[in-house]
Amino acid sequence: MQQLKTLVHSGININQGTSFTRLTARAIVIKNNKILLMYTARYEDYSLPGGGVDEGESIEQGLIRELNEETGAQNIQVIKPFGLYEEYRPWYKDDFDIIHIKSYCYVCSIADELGKAQLEHYEQQNGMSTKWVDINEAIAHNERTLANSEKQGLSILRETFLLKRIACDLL
């Protein structure tokens, strides 16, 4: 899969401390010039649907499961790989210092109608919801959040980068 970017968050040295790797899968679904995204009220940002790949799952199996759980998408077809975004972030628990996240992004197709999402408790508490959005509006929104909000999460840099690459390469 094509390497899109490797980001090391400020304040960490990847050569010091302990780290672990988390594999994630992210879906790119585009219909009628809109992209399917997750909006998180807590962080005021848009992100691609997806999440962690469970032990024993392939990346594609994790992608399909996460896309279904977060959005209610049905009849999911993985069309092609888009790219890999890697990041190193500080870890917030005592067992490790650094988390290395590998986000595998795939272009997917889904049925026209979304079913019921099955968000995890923390996703519900963070105010996550599924939205079809014009990609340029989502990019502009995330850029405003980066510039003006103190609520932003660590993933907004990744998500804004990916949205820009998708707009450039796929639309």
Rank of each mutant, 00 (worst) to 15 (best):
I64T: 10
E69H: 14
G52V: 14
V78Y: 03
Q74T: 06
R42I: 08
L63Q: 06
L119P: 06
P81A: 09
D54G: 11
V53G: 08
N32I: 01
I76V: 15
E120Y: 15
G51E: 06
L67P: 01
N142I: 08
I98T: 06
D45K: 13
E60F: 04
I99A: 06
L36G: 09
M38L: 14
N33D: 15
K93S: 13
S129V: 09
K102A: 12
E113G: 04
N75K: 10
G115M: 07
C105P: 00
I101T: 13
K34P: 03
I64F: 01
T71I: 05
H121P: 14
L48H: 11
K131W: 04
V53D: 07
V133S: 11
N75C: 00
T71Q: 02
M38T: 09
N142L: 08
W91K: 07
D95F: 12
L67E: 04
I139E: 04
G62A: 07
G83A: 11
D94H: 10
N126R: 14
I101K: 06
Q77K: 13
K34V: 02
K31L: 05
E143M: 14
R89D: 14
Y88P: 00
L119V: 12
T130Q: 07
I30F: 02
D45W: 08
T130H: 07
Y39I: 10
V78W: 00
N142S: 01
E60Q: 14
G50H: 04
E44F: 03
G115V: 06
P90K: 13
T24N: 15
L23F: 03
V133Y: 03
N136Q: 14
N126G: 00
K34M: 03
K80I: 01
Y43Q: 13
A25C: 09
A117T: 01
K31H: 08
L23V: 08
G50Y: 01
E66T: 04
N32W: 00
N75Q: 12
F82H: 14
L119E: 09
E70G: 02
R26V: 04
E86H: 09
L37E: 02
E44W: 00
N142W: 05
N142Y: 09
G62N: 04
L37S: 01
P49C: 10
I110C: 07
M38N: 14
Q118N: 15
N75S: 14
V53E: 12
S47D: 11
R22A: 09
Q118L: 12
Y106F: 15
N75I: 00
A117M: 04
N33Y: 02
A117W: 02
Y122F: 15
V133Q: 13
S129W: 00
V133R: 11
A27F: 03
F96N: 05
I35F: 13
A73C: 05
R22E: 14
E86N: 13
I64P: 01
L114A: 05
K131G: 07
N75A: 14
M128C: 11
S47Y: 10
H100S: 00
D54K: 15
G62R: 10
A41Y: 09
Q77R: 07
S103D: 12
S109G: 05
K31R: 15
L36C: 04
Y88I: 11
Q77E: 15
Y39S: 12
A140S: 13
I59R: 10
S129F: 07
